[in-house]
Write a protein that binds this DNA or RNA. Sequence first.
DNA 1: TATTGTTATACTCTATAACTATA
DNA 2: TATAGTTATAGAGTATAACAATA
Lengths: 150, 150
Amino acid sequence: MNTPVVEERMESATGFILVKLGGAAGVLFEQAVRPTGMRPRHIRVLGYVQTQTLSQQELCQLTGMDRTTMVAVVDELERLGHARREASSTDRRKRVVTPTPAGLKALVQAADLMKQAESQLLAPLSAAERRQLNKLLGRLFTPDLLACLP
Amino acid sequence: MNTPVVEERMESATGFILVKLGGAAGVLFEQAVRPTGMRPRHIRVLGYVQTQTLSQQELCQLTGMDRTTMVAVVDELERLGHARREASSTDRRKRVVTPTPAGLKALVQAADLMKQAESQLLAPLSAAERRQLNKLLGRLFTPDLLACLP
DNA sequence: TATTGTTATACTCTATAACTATA
DNA sequence: TATAGTTATAGAGTATAACAATA
């Protein structure tokens, strides 16, 4: 008996494509923002603190990173001169993360690079198709899905 | 000046959603097939060898894994009793990977679990929308994109 | 006693280099 | 000389546990 037990090419399954494409997009963005000396997570943190005053703990909740990772990310932002830790005025346990002028400038550059990378990624689609894709993907991103993650 | 330099919520950007959703889908599949004792890569290898006779090297080319990872994956398939290494009749350097009856049975079970997980993932979409999404994602998965990956 | 930030540590994944046996 | 498989090892990424300061 030589009939395939299971469809051989899960390459065409939506789930498979989604996983692979997500990974590829991650690498693409990583490469795109490399000139800034940052990685996507640094940019995400900078994005949050550009208008709000947030502690590391609050940034953890917003980004889903854990405390120890956040320490490293803020360390690196400080080393790059893109953010500083300051004592919270209300709770002396907390340390507030504040962007420097250089950090804000780097954020603008990074956002531009990411936008370019996204354009490259979505190049095969028309503007209407991009909106369609964004809408469909957004609907998959349910609390239900997030609930079963670690 | 308190105006956001950069849109604060890249959460709505297609690239961001794609990366996050891909990661979530990966975890979902990982969890779904856990009852089989396998991980998605084992299942992928089993899927390839169910009808073809392939060496580890050939499996590397098909899956994109490197040699050392493939050794580990085949080791684990052997330990589970789902595949065996056999000497190639044409080239004694090569070792051909062959599924056992138990391996084929496990593959069927795994494929079913993955299908269920995919249904769960795509539950928010209608059948027509799923086809649409599959088509759009497929078009993003270009050789161009794969070329800029490591 | 609980929480914030921190450090040290362990664990997983993957990649690199070196070895063997065959070609 | 090059290739297939293997092993050992190192590196990055992430998670866990324990600690200091403060609530």
